[in-house]
Design a binder for these strands. Sequence first.
RNA 1: GCCCCCAUCGUCUAGAGGCCUAGGACAUCGGCUUUUCAAGCCGGCGACAGGGGUUCGAAUCCCCUUGGGGGCGCCA
Length: 550
Amino acid sequence: MDAQPIVRTRFAPSPTGYLHIGGARTALFNYLLARRLGGKFVLRIEDTDQTRNIEEADRKLMEDLRWLGLQWDEGPEVGGPGGPYHQSERLEQYHARARELLERGLAYYALETREELEAMRKAAQQRGEKGFRYPRPTHFPSEAEARRARDAGRPVVVRLKMPDRDVTVHDRILGDVTIRAEELSDFVLLKADGWPTYHFAVVVDDAAMRITHVLRGQEHLMNTPNHIALQEALGYPTPEYAHLPIIFNMSGTKMSKREKDKVVRDAAKAGGLDDARLLQLAGLDDPALPAAWRKGDTQLPGDALLRLARALAVHLPEIEIHDFRRSGYLPEVLVNFIALLGWSPGEDREKFTLAELCERFSLERVGRTNARFDREKLLAFNTAALEAATPERKLAGLKDWLSVADPGPLTGLPDAVLARVIECCRGFRLFPDLEYKCGALFVPDEQIRYDEKAVRKVLLRDDGQGRRVLEVLRARLAAAPHWTPAALDELIRGVAEAQGLDLGKVAQPLRVAVTGATVSPQISDTLDLLGRERTLARIDRALAHLQTLQ
RNA sequence: GCCCCCAUCGUCUAGAGGCCUAGGACAUCGGCUUUUCAAGCCGGCGACAGGGGUUCGAAUCCCCUUGGGGGCGCCA
């Protein structure tokens, strides 16, 4: 009975690589609204800027979206009636619409060069005018004039003739926002290279794909009057708009990929890295790059940054979803967390699955205040989620992390062993913690490095008490009838009791002897994971190492 | 500079005129637990930006100030 058109939302990123955290939030809200209202979620790639298309960018983007569980109903790889879903494949559409507007006198050619425009802006500023508005000519250049200009090598663009009246955006989050006519300017629809601007493409495509709700960042609010004017000119319906608050860093700055460059740049500077070494470590070969990069003029490719960060032992701030994946977060945690950045359920509860969010999401509960991205809280969410996760979920998560992380001691271990590792590390917060805590158990014995401080404190102190305990332990372990966590636990407690020592005075020497450091799973699990043979071999190695210190 | 948006603990937020002595979560601080690391448990500290109105009554409505953010591209 109710003939409401089905709700259709979209996420329309420009392909620049992995999915930015802010983009992920926008994608999520669009996804949630579509799900909540039984509609469709469309993915469209806005690749209209020929100067900044990055190879593989959309593959990476889709990888991140899928990792988060935000599968689109229509878009690249899945198709749909509104395709193609890359704007680069839709050029005829834009040209047809531009032609239409030109013929109807609603758009016109403009022939200025960038330099001329720049000069006009500067002049306007000097005249003390408020903001620069393109001065609409009284007579629009004709088709022939445009062609002549183009032939003469001048840039020819198409601009929209803005209506001379105020435009009100009915925003579902911000309410009505009216922009006065004098603030509006005849903006460019078609660039000189024949490609559409974002404004033009977005309006044409949203109409073609029958998008009913546009959820996007608040930075787009001032573009919206342009879009509405265009929709009117083209006879399109205006979708519902909802401008989302923006996500910032804790420092209040925009979360930007540049931050990663900054961290590495600072580390390189502190480390006194010269250009040659820099290029070598980064795996790059453009000799002009280092100078520009050091000045902050340019950014390094993601993989080069990763290599440098590794070499310099610095942690890159997570900006893109893939970064969080590599850092060992669970996708459902990211989804839960970013859902709460700008939206709230209105109850004292904050842990939600994607499915639960789909049931609860509503535009009415989206806030208007910009939010800061608090990594501490994210970490707490991840810890709690891990705590609550089933062993299967944790195993799958660990394997996913290993698949994107740098190879380490845990890489390639059988599932059963990984499952044991997880079991033995209750309370871990991120997947790399597992490697930190158990890595030494899966490394060849000769790669064990003895932490000097630990050795001194645990094995040498008190006149070598730890060492003596170790010798007792070595004999008892060699003769232990059973090598299970329970049996080992009993054995170790027995030794402690017999020696009249606290458990810590027994467990720690053992731990340092077999791992080289003071951190590992509970001692009985540590030994069980290691096995008798390697345990004894490592104790012997430790004892021998102590000899060398005498 | 001009236009626009926003404003509750350090941070994310609940709050839609009396349910507010302002609730929850993270962080922080204190304690407990402990076989290392981590986790866990209990408790404490902690906010309505300021000033004017409106009202019997304001965190909630209005105005101003201040502060933060966004936009002013042939980027998206």
